[in-house]
Design a protein around this nucleic acid. Structure first.
Lengths: 200, 200
DNA sequence: TTTGAAATATGATGAAGGTCATTTTTTCAA
DNA sequence: TTGAAAAAATGACCTTCATCATATTTCAAA
């Protein structure tokens, strides 16, 4: 940990600031101290697909660090954030000399791999309504007790649907008493029902 | 390698034989010597979503080995195969003592993570026709020079569509001269066109 | 406080693709 | 070789959801 602290460079990031772009080469990892970051890909027509939303305590960007290939995803803050950067070399050294860290990383990679399998299956087999419920459950964990605070467009890009469709479904959820909306902030009133819609 | 050889247990598997099921606990990894294995998830209505097709030289099942949680995917041979099993303990020991192996594994995990991000974006943003083209490109690599030999159902479950829809699209591709079909075996005649349909 | 731009919302429409029913072909074991 | 079951193929229909157009609200800067 001393080693980490000696080598990390922490910075303040404002809202909608980019950490890295698709196509650029990874030079290190980003540790989120405070704030939130979306990890996404741009499809052929430029529409974003959000793959993951990382919150305080998570690391972003080590995925492609080991493969010496350019990023295929981009990352950007969703809100004001405090984020530290650890260079590739430092990080790899730490991993070599620290089995606990190493195992933690591998465990984390494995978990994400499983999460993405679920994501793929959901995308392939569920309706947008079901996917929205599923997504809200994920966001509920990410935002903890806070209301979900994402633009309609980001939310649509996470669910994988058109913004208009998402807005219509939010309206349905509101009418069904599942959520409460104050401008852009969404609070979940009936978690049970979300689970039952999401299926399983 | 000596160590590996001393501890692995190789077996012959016939077609459609299960390696592990969702919900079971990982006890080791499977190395495919010969043959092919599908890794899939069953959605709520039992429909399979194929996440990955592994061929000779690949390992299957180490993903959840580090997380001490049950498999969320299942694996099953697609054809007659020869597959070795290495127990969790042996494998973890090997990883601890062999940095080269270790880095290879992490690299592989990272690569799969990126592949799955692409998969998600494709699922979310592309038409079934485009996804079929994309899937055929992947299968082209897996089957190398051999014709693609998958049931229509498996193919549909990889693309993430209904079997009927897949069959109709295959017919289109056939009529457009992109593929040639002999009963269940599919040969690609026009790779270029596949790329242009898949987009990018 | 006004104002313009961005975000959100709503309506109309059509196409993509899922579902169900049925037929044809293939496979494989007796 | 044949018969039954599984797989593949085709047709009809209908729901879901994307797209385009437009209206309304929110927000921040002047």
């Amino acid at each position: 940990m001393e080693h980490v602290n000696a080598h990390k460079a922490c910075n303040y990031y404002k809202k909608h600031q980019s950490l890295f772009l698709e196509g650029s080469f990874p030079r290190g990892v980003f540790c989120i101290n405070e704030g939130m970051v979306k990890v996404f890909q741009r499809g052929d027509e430029g529409k974003e697909q959000i793959i993951h939303i990382a919150k305080a305590g998570e690391m972003v960007g080590f995925r492609s660090m080991f493969s010496e290939t350019p990023y295929r995803v981009a990352a950007e803050t969703l809100e004001e954030s405090n984020i530290c950067f650890i260079s590739k070399d430092d990080f790899l050294n730490m991993m070599d000399s620290n089995p606990v860290l190493r195992n933690g990383i591998i465990k984390e990679l494995s978990k994400e791999l499983s999460d993405r399998a679920d994501f793929i299956t959901n995308m392939a087999q569920k309706s947008v309504r079901e996917r929205l419920a599923f997504t809200m459950i994920i966001l509920l964990e990410i935002y903890d007790k806070e209301p979900i605070n994402l633009s309609r467009e980001d939310l649509a890009n996470f669910v994988g649907t058109a913004t208009e469709t998402l807005i219509r479904l939010l309206k349905d959820f509101k009418e069904e008493g599942i959520i409460e909306v104050h401008t852009r902030k969404i609070s979940v009133l009936n978690k049970e029902k979300l689970f039952s819609i999401a299926g399983k």
